[in-house]
C-alpha cells in the first residue's frame, strides 16, 4: 500500500464537492477517476496533494499523514500534471528542471540536471530541449509537464485529464508513456479522465465518482453497463475490439 485516502470532504461556500471519498492504491498501478463534468474528479486530485485543503479526511503515504508535511515535502512525493498549461516562454529544459524545485537549495546541481535530462529522454523530447514551451504543440506541451512531474521523482503521479486536448495519436502516446512510468519506476498513477475507452485500455483500477461520492471502485470487472448508466446516465454496450475492452454508447 502506498497511497491511502480516507474520508476526504471538500466544499466551496455554496456547494459540497466531495462527500467523504476513500480509496487506496499500490505502487506501479494506474488508477482512473471517472465521472461526468463536475463530479469532483479534479477536486479530488487537488485535495490529495493539498493544492486544495480538504475540510475533513486524511491522506496517508506509507502510513505517514501527508497533510502534516510542508508543501515542499509533499512535492518530493507527489507529482502533479494540471489540466491547463499556463502559457509561458521557458525553454523545455528549464520547464522540466522546475520539477527539481522541491530539492533545489540555491542552484541546480549536476544531479538535478541529469534527472531533468532523463525525464526529457523518457518523454522523447530531446529535439525540443531549448525551444520555448509555448511554441510546442498540445501533445508536446503535455509531455513537457509530465516530464516536469517525473523530474520530481515522485512516488505518486496525479494527472488531471492529460489527454483532453490531444489528437488520437498523442492520446495513445501519452497514455503509453504514463503506464510505462508506473510499471518501470513503480509509481502509483492516478488519472482523472473523460475517455472511458482510453481508461479501459490503460488503467487497472477504476474509481467512479458521482456528485462527489465514489459509486464504484475496483478492477476492470467493476465496469458494468449498470454502473456506467448510474454514473454517466448513458446506456453503453461493453465489448472487446482488437483485444481491448471498449464501451460504446447506444440508444438516444
Amino acid at each position: 500500500m502506498i497511497l491511502s485516502v480516507e474520508g476526504i470532504t471538500f466544499g466551496y461556500r455554496s456547494a459540497s464537492v466531495l462527500g467523504g471519498v476513500s480509496f487506496s492504491m499500490e505502487r506501479g498501478t494506474v488508477s482512473a477517476i471517472l465521472g461526468v463534468n463536475g463530479a469532483g474528479k479534479s477536486t479530488l486530485l487537488k485535495c490529495i496533494n493539498r493544492i486544495l485543503r480538504p475540510a475533513k479526511g486524511v491522506v496517508l503515504l506509507d502510513e505517514t499523514d501527508l497533510h502534516k508535511m510542508t508543501q515542499t515535502e509533499i512535492a518530493r512525493h507527489i507529482g502533479y500534471v494540471p489540466q491547463k498549461y499556463a502559457d509561458n516562454r521557458l525553454t523545455v529544459f528549464d520547464a522540466v528542471l522546475l520539477g527539481r524545485k522541491p530539492y533545489i537549495k540555491w542552484a541546480a546541481t549536476k544531479r538535478d540536471i541529469e534527472i531533468a535530462e532523463n525525464a526529457i529522454r523518457a518523454m522523447k523530447l530531446e529535439k525540443f530541449v531549448l525551444r520555448p514551451v509555448s511554441e510546442l504543440s498540445g501533445g508536446e506541451m503535455q509531455k513537457v509537464i509530465i516530464a516536469r512531474a517525473l523530474a520530481q521523482e515522485p512516488d505518486i503521479l496525479l494527472l488531471d485529464e492529460p489527454t483532453s486536448n490531444l489528437d488520437l495519436k498523442n492520446q495513445v502516446d501519452v497514455m503509453n508513456l504514463i503506464t510505462g512510468v508506473a510499471r518501470e519506476k513503480k509509481v502509483a498513477v492516478v488519472i482523472s479522465i473523460h475517455d472511458l475507452n482510453l481508461a479501459l485500455r490503460f488503467a487497472g483500477v477504476f474509481l467512479l465518482l458521482k456528485n462527489g461520492v465514489i459509486r464504484e471502485c475496483g478492477g476492470k470487472e467493476s465496469i458494468t453497463t449498470r454502473i456506467i448508466r448510474e454514473v454517466y446516465d448513458v446506456d453503453v454496450v461493453l465489448g472487446e475490439v482488437g483485444g481491448y475492452p471498449v464501451a460504446i454508447p447506444v440508444g438516444p
Binding site: K46, N49, R50, I51, T70, Q71, T72, E73, I74, A75, R76, I78, G79, Y80, P82, K84, Y85, A86, N88, L90, A95, L98, G99, K101, P102, I145, R148, A149, Q152
Partner: peptide, 12 residues
C-alpha cells in the same frame, strides 16, 4: 509563471 496550481504542486 507555470501557473498557480503547478507552483503549489512544486512546493511553492
Amino acid at each position: 509563471s507555470a501557473g498557480e496550481d503547478a507552483a503549489r504542486s512544486l512546493g511553492v
